[in-house]
Design a protein around this nucleic acid. Structure first.
Lengths: 132, 132
DNA sequence: TCACTGTTATACAAGTTATAGAACAGACCA
DNA sequence: TGGTCTGTTCTATAACTTGTATAACAGTGA
């Protein structure tokens, strides 16, 4: 799993990190139980501060995607096959999806354009084998 | 068209405003040529500063969704039927959609759950008549 | 003229982001 | 035991973002 981070982008580094981990879980590159590098190790890898990595891990922990102990470090806590989504999350997600879909529609993508893109992206998820 | 804004939410006010306008364009509540209130009028309506409204309008102008002149004020510059999307936008949008779809997948929504939600949301767009 | 508009400039308080250094305690290994 | 790594917590700082506040200017239209 190769993760890249752009320190000069619009998106905060800690959120880019979070997003890349979420995507890795979706694709199956990271599965329930997969260990993640320690905050300090990952920080030196990327040339960033370990507090920044800590913030990303903390976000993922609060979204129940990571378990973090002093013992086992950071471990993936769920993946695409873990169980049904919480209704609270679904409501929140639907709101965010509405804004994103509205933007595509307003900018000229048709309903079918949009659904094709979604299907294409979703087809890349859950394919079970990615390099580590 | 009734717009609500939450000053205490996680999302900046100017971005909430931008999102609501984008959604109104997608649903058809705002069409090509529809005038928007002046920045100062909208600001006093919401009890916020007119610079905040200005920032939202400026965002929408840079996304080519608004035309703004001293003469005609802020006017919707395109809608769902305006023409094909720019490839640059599609690439950027696909990236953001990937992150959002990954989050849904990681949190337990299935491919069909997700597509159903997208279809449902898209069905509410372009229905041509909304109150003003 | 007068009121309204968009536009621009400056300033300030509060919050966010990223970095930095320090310290503590649990885990692990030699 | 001692040393090292880990997560966790605390403080501090610089840079940037967000939102508010005033002020000023120029074009528009009644």
């Amino acid at each position: 799993m190769i993760i890249e981070v752009d320190p000069d982008g619009d998106v905060p580094i800690y959120q880019q990190l979070r997003d890349r981990v979420v995507e890795a879980i979706a694709t199956g590159a990271l599965k329930e139980g997969s260990p993640l590098p320690s905050t300090r190790a990952l920080a030196t890898d990327f040339g960033i501060n370990f507090h920044t990595v800590n913030k990303a891990y903390d976000l993922l922990r609060r979204q129940r995607l990571l378990r973090i102990n002093r013992k086992s470090g950071a471990v993936v806590s769920r993946d695409a096959s873990s169980g049904p989504a919480e209704p609270e999350f679904v409501a929140d997600w639907t709101g965010r999806a509405t804004t994103l879909l509205a933007e595509a529609t307003a900018r000229g993508l048709t309903r079918d354009d949009i659904l094709d893109i979604c299907r294409t992206v979703l087809a890349t998820f859950g394919e079970e084998s990615e390099e580590s």
